[in-house]
Every structure is written in C-alpha cells, then in structure tokens.
Simulated assay, not measured.
Amino acid sequence: MSELRTDRLLLRHWRDSDLDPWAAMNADPEVREHFPDLLTREQSAASIALFQAGLEQRGHGWWAVEVLATGEFIGFTGLDPADEGMPFTEMEIGWRLTRSAWGHGYATEAALACLEFGFKTLDLPEVVAITTTTNLRSQAVMRRIGMTRDPAADFDHPKVPDWPLRRHVLYRIRR
C-alpha cells in the first residue's frame, strides 16, 4: 500500500483519529459549499471506510493528508477510478482540505504528488478533475498543476439531480 511524501505533507492511509477532524470538515458549510449536503458523523465514518478499502484494494485512492511538521490531519487528496455513470472513464484526481489549510499551497503540493504517482507508477496516459462551475478555488488548483479545462466535456453531474450547482467542469492533463 503506497503512501506519498512531499516536502511538507504525508499522503497516508486513514487512521481512527482522523474521524473527528474529517467529520468536522464535512459539517462545515464553507468546506461543503460546492456539495449538495453536509455530512453527518456516520456518513463521514462510512466515507473513511470506503476510502481505506480503495487504498487497500488498489494501493492508491483517496489518501488522508497530514502536515509533516505538526502531524495535523488536514483533509484528503488522491487518484480514484471514475465512478460508474460518469461521462468520463479516466482516473480522477481530487482534494478537499479543512479551511485552516486553505491558502498554504497544500492542495497544489498534494495534487502534484498524486499526478507524479499516477504518471510514473500507474503509467496513466491522462488524469481528469471535476468540480462545480462555481468552485473557482479548485479550478485554480487544477490550472496550477497544469490541467486544462475541456469545455466540450462539461456536464450535469448524474449523482446530483435538481441541485442548483449540478453543472460541472472537467479539466484534463496528459502524461
């Protein structure tokens, strides 16, 4: 099972101690601004179980992100296969960080480590990222890591029907 390390971050497997800060993140309206709902503690725990299972099965997925200097859990990033029913089949890169971690370059740093892993270790030809049309912070990270928006591939997210922010943009990067 792979873990990734950058100058400041450890992308690692999930621990029991991650549940409290993860649940707090998922209950934060600002962190969840571009998602349909806040998550309960039980939903957060279930997501950790799914993330950890993915890591164990594939050796990659949604890693927990920890600041090396402090040991603080700050969110997740990773590479995961496209969900069934999505209008793309490429490996997806993503991230979500707690508000206190915003503005420090952590999402960009973690995402670059994931891209390197995806291209060098997994030999992926291409990686995609998606977000709502209004999530300008994530779109900025996508551009900083070298991704380019593919406007022809923008889509209505099939798992969020009738939500005002259903429209999503798709960014791509090739090896």
Rank of each mutant, 00 (worst) to 15 (best):
S2P: 08
T6K: 06
L11I: 04
R15M: 01
D16W: 03
D20Q: 14
A24W: 14
N26R: 15
A27D: 14
P29T: 12
V31R: 07
F35L: 15
P36E: 14
L38H: 10
L38W: 13
L39D: 03
R41Y: 02
Q43H: 04
S44W: 01
S44A: 02
S47D: 10
I48K: 03
A49S: 13
A53Q: 09
R58P: 12
G61F: 00
W62I: 05
W62M: 06
W63E: 01
W63M: 01
A64N: 04
V65D: 00
E66G: 00
E66P: 00
E66S: 00
A69D: 02
A69H: 02
A69C: 01
T70V: 08
F73V: 07
I74E: 07
I74N: 06
F76T: 03
F76D: 01
D80P: 01
A82V: 06
E84C: 10
E84W: 10
M86L: 15
M86F: 15
P87A: 13
F88Y: 15
E90Y: 11
I93N: 00
W95C: 07
W95K: 04
R96D: 14
T98K: 05
W102V: 10
G103F: 07
Y106D: 11
A107D: 10
E109G: 14
A111I: 07
A111S: 08
A111N: 00
C114F: 00
E116P: 01
K120H: 05
K120L: 06
D123Q: 14
D123K: 09
L124C: 04
L124K: 07
E126P: 04
E126C: 12
V128K: 01
I130V: 14
T133I: 12
T133V: 11
T134H: 14
N135Y: 12
S138P: 13
Q139S: 09
A140Q: 13
A140W: 04
V141R: 06
R143W: 03
R144D: 09
M147G: 07
D150S: 08
D154V: 08
D156V: 02
H157I: 12
K159F: 15
K159A: 07
P164E: 04
P164V: 02
R166A: 10
R166Y: 03
V169W: 07
L170M: 07
L170T: 05
Y171M: 03
